[in-house]
């Protein structure tokens, strides 16, 4: 498979989950484990461009695929607009759900560059965050969507503004 554009070959036990392969064999620890049962979304990566919970897939199933993790999202030191949005709009606190949340948000915006609040909320429904109450995650995705369309993002809504 290729991971973040780099070809990778390895022999692994068939029971090795993709998330453990990424974290333990490749030491790409940005992809997190929150439940190992497919419910929290902390382990979300892109496999051939589609968001996948990497704890629900064996590493061998990704043989030949192109995998992108959070570490591969920024290009040439330039943050992806979604990463920028999370920073600008305080879309993270502990940061544990964040890599998965960002990968899901990127996938959402790839399909819909003008999502409504409801579409954003449903689009990231499979990713649990216990810290933010999602309010600022929605604002972060709105920010990124505007940026990706080349528009000025909406102002922040905390008192005192920017």
């Amino acid at each position: 498979m290729t991971v973040n554009g780099q070809p990778v070959t390895a022999d692994v036990e068939p029971r090795t989950l993709l998330v453990h392969f990424l974290r333990e064999h490749l030491r790409l620890t940005g992809t997190h484990v929150g439940c190992e049962t497919g419910y929290c979304g902390a382990c979300t990566v892109h496999v051939d461009g589609e968001p996948v919970k990497s704890c629900t897939m064996f590493a061998v199933q990704a043989d030949g695929a192109s995998v992108t993790t959070i570490e591969g999202l920024a290009r040439d030191g330039q943050l992806h607009p979604v990463q920028e949005g999370f920073w600008e709009r305080h879309g993270l606190q502990c940061g544990y759900c964040t890599p998965g949340m960002i990968m899901s948000s990127v996938a959402l915006l790839d399909k819909n560059d003008r999502p409504t609040e409801e579409e954003i909320r449903h689009g990231i429904e499979g990713n649990l965050c216990r810290c933010t109450g999602y309010h600022n995650i929605v604002r972060a995705v709105e920010y990124a969507a505007a940026r990706m369309r080349g528009e000025e993002p909406p102002a922040p809504d905390w008192e005192g503004g920017e």
């Binding site: 620890t29 992809t31 959070i70 570490e71 943050l79 999370f86 964040t98 890599p99 960002i102």
Partner: peptide
């Protein structure tokens, strides 16, 4: 805190 965390470089 965020530059590390949004790039998957935070260490837990």
């Amino acid at each position: 805190e965020d530059p590390a965390l949004i790039r998957g470089m935070g260490k837990y």
